[in-house]
Simulated scan of single mutants.
Amino acid sequence: MNVLMVGPDSLEKGGIATVIRNFEKHYDSSMYSLFFLSSWSSNKKWRTIGKAFWRIRKLIRVNNISIVHFHVAQRGSFFRKVLLSRFIPRECKIIFHMHASQFDRFYENSNKFTQFIIRRSFDYADRIIVLGNGWADFYKKLTKTEVIVLPNAVKIPETTLFNPTAQNIITFGRVGWRKGSYDLLQVAQQINKSYPDIRFILYGDGEIEKVGEQIKAKRMRNVCLGGWLDKREQKEVIKNAILHFLPSYHEGLPMSVLETMAAGIPNLVTEVGGLPECIVHQKNGLIVKPGDVNGMVRELEDYLAQPKYRKRLSEVSRKYVADYFSLTNYHQKWDEIYTELYLRH
């Protein structure tokens, strides 16, 4: 039985591309074969989109596709997948795999007609897959289609990459308000008083100029921008990290959090999206309310002051991801979802 997976090119930046890349590299099923169609790329944006519309029906026919698995975010990503789903033959089942970090805001800020289109589009799908229970509660209000919770997963490194003497606090992802980058600058200013050797490095794209201007204006020597990294470069950076810090205001379930935990790097995150279902406070990481800069400083100072505490969080976070977020278990759950859909064919 064959499944067509539709989403951004797997070589693109971001969490969705990482999820697709993991399917390409590590999915191994005796029941299903995966085929891939890129619906977006940064270099050849319109050409890739046009090619997806032109190719999708032929790919389904030639490869005898039974299920089309769409990877979906908000705004343009959502509407591209909605339009592509209208090209799917009736005998094929449709999955909307929702990765959006701000779909609630996208929906609430849309006009009544757009909200109607969104609801109807979800009803048209056969399954909605979401990254956490909080998101499930939201989508269930919009659609009669069955909503299933399935968090993201990662490849577990063979050994821990945690360096207990490291002095870098890193952030992977986009730089900007949604990721809490401006709160991070406030935290860094306060931490510098007690721990002047600790450096905060933001890796990613986004509001680079704006954040860079604030760093320069505040004459901050303990914060720098590291640019976007490929996976090989990420691994080297992780080896010199004492913590991954993500003070976001909106999230799905960031791959950066799971990947750093799998490598043995503890996380300080906020109570948004699927993160409360992944991080247990002071057990396998640290979690505070979004915008609580003083709380972040307090947790960070405690963490930096206690070597045994850091080591314990590292060990537990790595084991937790191995137990609950491994790719092997994740792909087995996808086999179950595909099978249940196929049997209803």
Rank of each mutant, 00 (worst) to 15 (best):
M1A: 14
P8F: 01
L11M: 11
V19R: 02
R21G: 06
E24I: 09
H26V: 00
Y27V: 05
Y27E: 13
S29I: 03
S30F: 04
F35G: 02
L37M: 04
N43E: 13
N43A: 12
R47Q: 14
G50P: 01
I56S: 03
R57C: 00
K58Q: 11
L59W: 02
L59N: 07
R61N: 12
S77W: 02
S77M: 04
F79I: 14
K81V: 04
L84N: 06
H97E: 13
A100C: 04
F106L: 04
F106P: 03
E108G: 01
N109P: 02
I117S: 00
F122W: 07
D123E: 14
G134C: 03
G134A: 10
D137T: 12
E146T: 14
L150T: 05
L150Q: 15
V154N: 09
I156F: 08
F162S: 06
T165A: 13
N168F: 01
G173N: 10
R174K: 12
K179Q: 12
G180R: 09
L184G: 14
L185A: 01
L185M: 05
V187P: 03
V187Y: 03
I191L: 13
N192C: 10
Y195D: 01
Y195P: 03
R199S: 10
F200P: 07
I201M: 08
D205C: 01
Q214N: 08
I215F: 04
A217T: 07
L225K: 05
L225E: 08
L229V: 10
R232D: 13
R232L: 08
E233L: 01
I238T: 10
N240S: 12
L243D: 07
H244V: 13
F245V: 12
F245I: 10
P247F: 12
S248R: 06
Y249L: 12
H250Q: 13
G252P: 06
P254M: 09
M261A: 08
M261Q: 14
P266R: 10
N267M: 04
T270E: 11
E271Y: 11
E277N: 08
V280F: 09
G285E: 09
L286E: 10
V293Q: 09
V293M: 07
L300R: 05
K308F: 06
Y309F: 15
Y309T: 05
K311C: 09
R318H: 11
K319L: 09
V321A: 11
T328D: 15
H331Q: 12
H331C: 06
K333G: 00
Y338S: 07
L343G: 08
H345Y: 00
